[in-house]
Nucleic acid binder design. Sequence first.
DNA 1: CTCAATTATTGGCTTTGTGCCACTATTTTA
DNA 2: TAAAATAGTGGCACAAAGCCAATAATTGAG
Lengths: 246, 246
Amino acid sequence: MTSDNIQKEECDYLESYNAKDFDRPSTSVDNVIYTIINNALHVLIVKRSNHPFKDQWALVGGFVDLNTDNNLEMTAKRKLKEKTGVNTPYLEQFSTIGNKDRDPRGWSVTTVYFALLPSENITLNVGKGANDIKWAKIDNGKISETLAFDHSEILRECTQRLRSKALYTSLPLYLMPEKFTLHELQEVYHAVLSSKMDPKSFRRRMLTTDLLEETAEMRQTGRRPAMLYRVKNDQPFFFTRTIEGI
Amino acid sequence: MTSDNIQKEECDYLESYNAKDFDRPSTSVDNVIYTIINNALHVLIVKRSNHPFKDQWALVGGFVDLNTDNNLEMTAKRKLKEKTGVNTPYLEQFSTIGNKDRDPRGWSVTTVYFALLPSENITLNVGKGANDIKWAKIDNGKISETLAFDHSEILRECTQRLRSKALYTSLPLYLMPEKFTLHELQEVYHAVLSSKMDPKSFRRRMLTTDLLEETAEMRQTGRRPAMLYRVKNDQPFFFTRTIEGI
DNA sequence: CTCAATTATTGGCTTTGTGCCACTATTTTA
DNA sequence: TAAAATAGTGGCACAAAGCCAATAATTGAG
């Protein structure tokens, strides 16, 4: 068969193809949106106003809208923007969970993204499908609220991934405000890792990369003032060694 | 509203819920199946016997079957077993790609897994939807065949991920036959990384973990015989330092 | 005005694991 | 018996982390 014939055949095939002829799972995106509040890791959750799991807390997510979303990341960003107003977060795909039991409506697939938001002036909007929204504090990888669907498990695994990446990357930098001291950055690492590091080692690790630059300002806190830094290089950095002893 | 009332409401809601009322993307799984042949990394590809992309090579994949597959991983394993007979590979979810352009039939989501198969006696079956199947050699992260859909890009990115993980994990061990010499293992690392390492450093790195154990046998190759090892610990190992200079 | 308390920052030695490269060991074949 | 080939080791240098004590800069109590 010639290549032209195959092209023709494919056109015919596509013309007669009807998406409704095949059973498909539902497809959604869920965001695990982290930020730092009072030196503790928090995650954004919403209270569902619709069935199923009505009036229960859940991660920020929603179905892919085939008309407005060109790809999965657009779905993730649309929901993120709707709830926080943030346009350009650090956003990374975490994992996709698909099975026949996670949603009472039937076979369901969700692609989970996680976002890191700087800890400054974020205004929350309840948005669609929700009647409440709040930051929930993460303790020991868990929050006190029970979440809808398999979201508690997703949150636990995603937080574990974030923690593991903090051991060898600069990801926690995306949780920082524009200007910050090295001590403040170290506190954020502590919040993510739930473990303390030596300040000398931490400073050396951060300053021997090209990630940070000094500002002309100092943080005045009533004791010895501390140098304020800002991010110089926006790319995530991968260290060649992990932090040990976790 | 009482909790009982909500339960009742949810039952009513689920009863009236009709999956066909909502447009959903198609959902598939694609496998990037690696093995080692003649000291080179290879990937399994099939020639499609159906539209679209009829008669073109593609990764091993297929649609989720809502009736037989309980979850996405079952879809991945079902296709893997159909083509190779392998039941228990190393299988890891790589990434999910979903957009409106990747499939001419419309909005499509595919979850990509990668599998590592030991380099020994695997019998290939053409299986459903294909009229040919073969191992394609990976050179510089690419194969010479053009692949259907966005599979060439998926292969490139997935191979990059495998390469990057080989720098700090023991993943290449899953590509080894039951017994192997340290030199043979190093050759597999070389095949994955496309770069050479010092034999002393490599042996030290491998032997200071608890990953391997000596067998009583030696590989006889006509020169000095080499100790044969087998895998002692089936869990993937994460080194605290990456191999440098790549 | 001086000193204790507090927080920021540095000095410097130890430890760990890799890079490097020359050297030794064991086998076959010429 | 020696050369060639492959397996495996000795040992030092180096980079980056751990560890912990010392120094620096500031405020507030007396």
